[in-house]
């Protein structure tokens, strides 16, 4: 073991009595602001009367739910408004609120750009999220994509619909790449942890190398 050099006496460098007199809060100040003052929330039925696309998504992680309505300017193909409702924790509420700002600010976001919004983009705008809360912000961009697909469907642009692709990884346990992605988002990082959540490869060990590769991929993608 490496020898630890102790230049300063520990007592001089460590003070266990907090010096910071400001109030600590679990999340960043931006999240706090969006949590207590959510933007673009649906307050009454009229708010979403003439929407162009509706998306809804449930999180298998903790049973949370998100609903998103969008209004699209058909000429410019830009999202003009996004309204939402979220059943979930503080960061889920703030993430949806922030997403609604991101797609409707500066005259609206072109749909093609909105489709590219990733969980990290939302997280970044929020000033960071605790690791175990990343999955809440993923909920937002998924709900938005589902609303856009709904708009494509309703406006006769079926060719633009993007299926959230799923690929079967383990035929025995019926586990898809999607399930592994979810497991990683829920905090699983090792094969064992992913197996605990999905049962992948337990009756079918030949798929394990691919599973391990996917775990690395998704861990890198979300937590890199």
């Amino acid at each position: 073991m490496a020898k630890i050099k102790n230049k300063k006496p520990l007592a001089a460098t460590i003070d266990i009595v907090p010096k910071d007199s400001s109030d600590p809060w679990v999340y960043s100040p931006i999240i706090k602001d969006h949590f207590f003052h959510p933007r673009n929330l649906v307050l009454k039925a009229e708010d979403v009367k003439n929407y162009d696309g509706l998306g809804m998504i449930g999180s298998p992680a903790c049973g949370d739910m998100m609903k998103v309505w969008i209004k699209v300017d058909k000429k410019t193909d830009k999202i003009k408004k996004m309204k939402w409702q979220t059943f979930g924790c503080g960061s889920a509420i703030s993430a949806t609120s922030m997403l609604s700002v991101m797609v409707s600010e500066k005259g609206g976001l072109p749909i093609d750009d909105a489709l590219k919004i990733k969980a990290q983009d939302i997280t970044e705008r929020l000033g960071g999220l605790p690791v175990r809360k990343i999955h809440c912000s993923v909920l937002g961009d998924k709900a938005l994509r589902s609303a856009i697909n709904n708009y494509f469907h309703k406006s006769g642009q079926k060719h633009r619909i993007i299926e959230e692709s799923k690929r079967i990884i383990d035929k025995v346990a019926r586990v898809t790449d999607h399930d592994i992605e979810e497991a990683v988002l829920e905090g699983a990082r090792t094969l064992e942890e992913v197996q605990k959540k999905t049962k992948v490869g337990i009756g079918n060990p030949s798929v394990l190398p691919e599973v391990e590769q996917l775990i690395r991929f998704y861990s890198e993608k979300y937590f890199g």
């Binding site: 207590f36 903790c62 949370d64 979930g88 889920a92 175990r132 905090g187």
Partner: peptide, 24 residues
């Protein structure tokens, strides 16, 4: 979310919600 609101008005409480547990 409820606890965060309560905390804001100075009340400390607890919940069994999945969102507050490490295991979700």
């Amino acid at each position: 979310a409820l606890l965060l609101y309560l905390d804001e008005i100075g009340i400390q409480a607890s919940t069994g919600s999945a969102c507050t547990s490490n295991s979700l």
